[in-house]
Nucleic acid binder design. Sequence first.
DNA 1: TCTTGACCCTCCAATGGTGGGAGGGCGTAC
DNA 2: GTACGCCCTCCCACCATTGGAGGGTCAAGA
Lengths: 150, 150
Amino acid sequence: MNIGEASKATGISVKMLRYYEEIGLVRPALRANSGYRVYPDKSIATLRFVRRARDLGFQVKQIAALLDLWQDGSRASADVKSLAMDHVRELEQRRRELDEMIGTLEHLAHHCQGDARPDCPILTGLSAEEVVPPKAARKKSSRRSFAVAG
Amino acid sequence: MNIGEASKATGISVKMLRYYEEIGLVRPALRANSGYRVYPDKSIATLRFVRRARDLGFQVKQIAALLDLWQDGSRASADVKSLAMDHVRELEQRRRELDEMIGTLEHLAHHCQGDARPDCPILTGLSAEEVVPPKAARKKSSRRSFAVAG
DNA sequence: TCTTGACCCTCCAATGGTGGGAGGGCGTAC
DNA sequence: GTACGCCCTCCCACCATTGGAGGGTCAAGA
């Protein structure tokens, strides 16, 4: 398999296949006499693993760790699970941040007429001293919260 | 106000204050004879606006647009709302992606004993032909990579 | 007045994944 | 033989942010 075929087979772009090799995430591919990279089925399986891990949001370093565990027949599943759950917690953290942004924005937008007039609680909210979240605990002190003036 | 004080007043790092100026997001600060940047209250207000927009996940280009609208007394609130809602949709899209990742990972991890033995459905799942989503519709997931600046 | 330390300046580099492109070498079909 | 589609390497750009080097400024204390 050439790199283009490997790309189609794995869903990883040609650029990224070379990049993963360069940074040492995967072993350098064998080369044909022409200098072209050659991918045996085994490499394809590894690369598919990598792509799926990327699809699940793992970073390259974490994927490297996962690959090591995958290839280590004597691994403990606890180590894999631990890595995965660490990642889940990180994803959940990001989701919480998104939730807060979305909540605040929807709150602000809800109060905006969205017509031809200039009055706009969204802009007011952005320029306000403090900003308040939609319904979360409304402690006056909670930084990171937006208030709609009015 | 010096840049350090402006940083404290706005929550934007000194580095970023200079960067925002460099890329033209905000007007170049005035300079004292020493060459030090000087920030009047008006700039501080603008910078706070910028920081809040960043906290809501807006990208720099969007913030530039928001700033323009903010400073344009004859804006239509519809334009602001439209920009904000576009952004909300983008955030929601990201959240959906996170949800899917989290769902899949939890599903896999749920079946993993997490003990000293090597058998691990997480690794098996990553090396499987297809990654199985928990229970959501099994349509072939759209190929698109996940990008969230950490 | 001199020194010290905190601050400021500019310039350059790195991060993490990814895409784009230039300039040139292969491979194969016609 | 030639045209076209691959492949190669090398460099750049993106986005937002941080870090550091090398050097100037300011204010307080001895």
